[in-house]
Simulated assay, not measured.
Amino acid sequence: MVVMEQVPTAERSSGRAVAVAAYAVLFVLGLVMGLLGAFQHSWYLRPTTVPVSAFGCVLALFAVCYGAGRMMGGKLAALAAASGWLVMTMVWLSGRQEGDVIIAADLSGYIYLYGGMVAALTAVLVTPTSHGGSWLLTRH
């Protein structure tokens, strides 16, 4: 016979509040990464014109999304950070009346945009789902 421990309702609701807050913070982290990456992705290594910062932004996005998923114990955390980055990136891709765009159609822009999308998707897909729950919500 398996005895299941009953968790009080107050603890359960506070655990949900902490989880929602953690996912919201990860979404905001994705927004910040999209903000910083949009303005910093076009640094080139001269004289070979390799956009090193675009590659760095893509690697950082993968690391944050994958790390968030591993720490929170599920794909939803990786998706929260990735979706924040995607929302901010789409804002910067939209043109303005003046004709300005933040992410230009050059090599660094393509690496940042398409590489970031591949990195975010890959991080979400390779994040393992642990059934033990989040490190944030478990008792130690």
Rank of each mutant, 00 (worst) to 15 (best):
S53Y: 11
F39E: 13
V126G: 02
R16E: 15
R139M: 11
D100T: 04
V18D: 15
L107R: 06
E98T: 13
V124Y: 00
M72Y: 14
Y114K: 01
M88P: 02
L36M: 11
V3A: 10
S94H: 03
R139E: 15
T127D: 11
M4H: 09
F39C: 02
I103F: 09
V87C: 12
S42V: 00
P47E: 14
G115Y: 12
L35V: 02
M71A: 12
L125A: 15
P8G: 11
G37L: 09
V52D: 10
G109D: 09
I103H: 13
I111Y: 12
G99A: 05
A54D: 09
G132S: 10
R46K: 11
G115L: 01
F39A: 10
A104Y: 05
Y112R: 00
I102C: 08
G34Y: 00
V50Q: 07
P51I: 03
L26I: 03
I111P: 12
S94E: 12
I111N: 08
L93I: 01
L61P: 01
S130V: 06
L136P: 13
Y66I: 00
V50N: 12
I102L: 13
P51W: 08
Q40T: 13
L136K: 03
A105G: 03
T9D: 12
L59S: 07
F62H: 06
L26D: 11
V87Q: 08
M117I: 09
I111K: 04
G84F: 00
T122D: 00
P128Q: 10
A119V: 03
V87G: 02
M90C: 15
L31D: 04
L125T: 03
A77N: 07
S134E: 05
L36E: 08
L61M: 13
G133C: 08
V91A: 14
A24H: 04
C57M: 12
D100N: 10
M72W: 14
V58S: 06
A54F: 10
Y114P: 09
F55R: 03
W135I: 03
Q40G: 08
V3D: 13
G73P: 14
M1K: 05
V25R: 00
A123E: 04
L61D: 01
Q97L: 11
H41K: 03
A17R: 11
H41D: 06
T9V: 08
L31M: 11
L79D: 01
D106N: 15
G99S: 10
T49S: 15
K75Y: 09
R96G: 15
A78H: 12
S83H: 05
A68P: 09
G34N: 04
A80L: 01
L86M: 14
G99C: 08
V64F: 14
G95M: 05
S108H: 06
L93C: 09
T122Q: 00
E11I: 03
V7H: 02
T122W: 15
V32E: 02
V25K: 00
M88G: 02
L86S: 14
R12T: 08
A120L: 05
G95S: 10
M90K: 06
G95A: 11
T127V: 07
